[in-house]
Simulated assay, not measured.
Amino acid sequence: MDLVSLSSLMLPLIGIPVVVLGFALRFNPLLVVTVAGLVTGLATGMDFGSLLETFGEKFLNSRQLASALLILPVIGLLERAGLRERAQAWVAGIRSATTGRILMLYFVVREISAAMGLLSLGGQAQTVRPLLSPMAEAAASNQHGDLPAPIRERIAAHAAACDNVALFFGEDIFIAFGAVLLMSAFLKENGIQGVEPLSIGMWGIPTALCALVIHLFRLSRLDAAIARDIHAWRAREQGNKAVDVADVTDVTDVVDKAGVSS
C-alpha cells in the first residue's frame, strides 16, 4: 500500500484527534462534536452544502432523542414546583389507598401498556420518582404516621422494581420491540426459519403472566410487612427511650446519695 492510499484511508479518522483535543481543552462538547463532524466531512471530499444537508438530515432523524432529553428538566421543574407534595396530598385523602394496592395497580397498567408498545408511558425518571414513590409513601404514612428512613427506602425500592419488572416482561410481547426483531433476524440468519416476531411475542405472554402473578403476590404481602416493620421499629425506639430514662435515673440517684452523705 503506497503513501497516498494510506493517507486517504486515514483522512476519515481526522475527527478523532479533534474530539480528543477539544475535550482535553474543556471546550463545549456540542461545539467539539460539530467541528469534528465538519472537519471529517471536508477531509473526505464532501462539499460544504452536502455537509450541511447531512447534518440537517441526521438532526431530523434524531429529533425524537432530543425530545426525550427534554423530559428530564421538565420533570425537575415540576418537582421543584411541588409535584411530589401534591401527589402525596392527593393519595392521603383516599382512605382505601395502601402502598401495596397502588403498586399493584401501577404494575398491571405498566405491563399492559408495555405489551401494547407504549414503553415511554412510565419510567423511573418521569413516573416512579416524582409520582409513584411519593404516592406509595403517602399511603403508608396515612396508615402509620411518620415513617422511618429504612421504610421509606424500602417503599421506593419496591416502586422502582414495579416499573423494571413490568417493563421487562411486558415489552417482550410487543412484536415491534427491538429485542423481538433482533431475535427473529438472528434465528433467520442462522438457518432457523418459521420464527416470526408474532410467534416470539406469543411465547412471551406466559412469562409475562407468571411475572404478573408472582409480583402481585409479593405486593399483596407488602402492607403487612410494612406494618410489622414499623411496629418493631417503634418498639425498639420505646425500648431505647426506656433505657435512656433508666440511665438518667441511676445518675440522679448517685448524685442524690452523694449529696446526702456529704
Results as ranks from 00 to 15, higher is better:
102 I>L: 15
73 P>W: 07
88 Q>A: 15
63 R>N: 00
86 R>F: 08
80 R>H: 11
101 R>A: 13
83 L>G: 06
157 A>H: 07
139 A>K: 08
116 M>N: 01
121 L>Y: 10
117 G>M: 05
162 C>H: 02
154 R>Q: 10
99 T>Y: 14
81 A>D: 08
78 L>W: 13
86 R>C: 06
160 A>P: 01
105 L>F: 13
127 T>I: 15
162 C>F: 00
79 E>S: 06
94 I>E: 10
87 A>T: 14
113 S>T: 13
70 L>N: 03
69 L>Q: 05
132 L>C: 09
104 M>L: 14
155 I>R: 11
93 G>I: 04
164 N>Y: 06
119 L>W: 15
124 Q>V: 13
61 N>K: 07
63 R>G: 02
65 L>P: 05
118 L>P: 03
116 M>F: 15
68 A>P: 04
144 H>E: 05
77 L>R: 03
100 G>P: 11
140 A>Y: 03
91 V>P: 10
165 V>G: 00
144 H>F: 10
105 L>V: 13
98 T>G: 10
148 P>Q: 05
80 R>E: 14
101 R>V: 13
91 V>Y: 08
109 V>S: 15
155 I>Y: 09
116 M>W: 03
126 Q>I: 12
122 G>L: 02
124 Q>H: 15
60 L>P: 00
81 A>T: 03
120 S>C: 02
132 L>A: 12
162 C>V: 08
158 H>M: 03
108 V>N: 01
94 I>D: 05
96 S>T: 15
96 S>Y: 06
133 S>Y: 09
152 R>K: 07
136 A>H: 09
128 V>M: 12
62 S>K: 02
